[in-house]
């Protein structure tokens, strides 16, 4: 059974149809990529799946239950985690604390216990801090464990977001352009990181413009254009699809101009 089913999903902003009548399914344990030119609606799809936007119509089914229009924290509770194209880092906290935010649902959220700093809560929190530090090493930002978030460079912040998303121990992880703005070495490291995450059993949904990265690691690829599905299939199928070539050649031509 599919982990995620998107059924006839649409969302428009004023006159702009950001996503139109879009359907696809994602099998558990796979790396599934969504590609498409700028403004194709990729981020909007993420926002619809994670509950940040409400769809104009259509359904989202996750892990067998209808989650359409549910609040973001509800989706997090069910095992959906994500990163953002435009960094969403809490610069008022340390790096480790940012990652610990990701573990929120697994921690004691009682007000009274927090005020009194009950021993059990303090112990859990210390363990969580250790795990967060471990995750930072896992994503390759171990040297910033003692740092404040606003003292970290851009590339490290992108990974910090991944660590935060992993701290929730999600079933499905959505990555919105994790390699954007990174140099080739860093991109290569992100590539390896995503594969490691995939191997650990987490279903990965990837939005990325770096075609080499996408083609190399994706089990399946969805191509969006103007909010609609242009093609879907394996890397090979997508690469050979004439409509995709046309759309992308258009983009390349525009970019070159």
């Amino acid at each position: 059974m599919a982990l995620l089913e998107v059924q006839a999903l649409s969302r428009s902003f004023g006159g702009v149809h950001a996503v139109q009548d879009l359907s696809f399914e994602i099998e558990p344990g796979k790396i599934y990529s969504i590609i498409g030119p700028n403004g194709a609606g990729k981020t909007t799809v993420f926002n619809l799946i994670t509950g940040l936007y409400r769809p104009s119509s259509g359904r989202v089914v996750f892990d067998g239950s209808n989650v359409t229009g549910k609040a973001p924290h509800e989706l997090a509770r069910r095992g959906v985690s994500r990163t953002f194209q435009n960094l969403q880092i809490c610069f008022n906290m340390s790096a480790v604390e940012n990652v610990m935010v990701g573990a929120h649902l697994r921690l004691d959220q009682g007000m009274l216990g927090s005020m009194l700093r009950l021993p059990a809560l303090a112990r859990r929190d210390a363990v969580c801090r250790e795990e967060a530090a471990e995750l930072m090493r896992f994503v390759g930002v171990g040297k910033y464990i003692g740092a404040l978030a606003d003292a970290m460079p851009y590339g490290a912040l992108k990974r910090l977001e991944i660590a935060r998303a992993l701290a929730a121990r999600p079933k499905m992880l959505l990555l919105d352009e994790p390699a954007a703005g990174l140099n080739p070495t860093e991109t290569h490291e992100i590539d390896e990181l995503i594969q490691k995450i995939g191997v650990s059993g987490v279903t990965v949904v990837l939005v990325e413009h770096d075609m080499k990265l996408v083609m190399g690691i994706s089990d399946r690829i969805l191509v969006l254009d103007y909010g609609r599905k242009l093609a879907e299939g394996t890397a090979r199928e997508v690469r050979d699809n004439p409509e995709v070539i046309a759309a992308y050649l258009g983009v390349v031509a525009k970019a070159a101009a």
Partner: peptide, 9 residues
């Protein structure tokens, strides 16, 4: 938004 998607109501 980061807080929300991390499961914070």
């Amino acid at each position: 938004v980061a807080a929300q998607v991390a499961g914070i109501d």
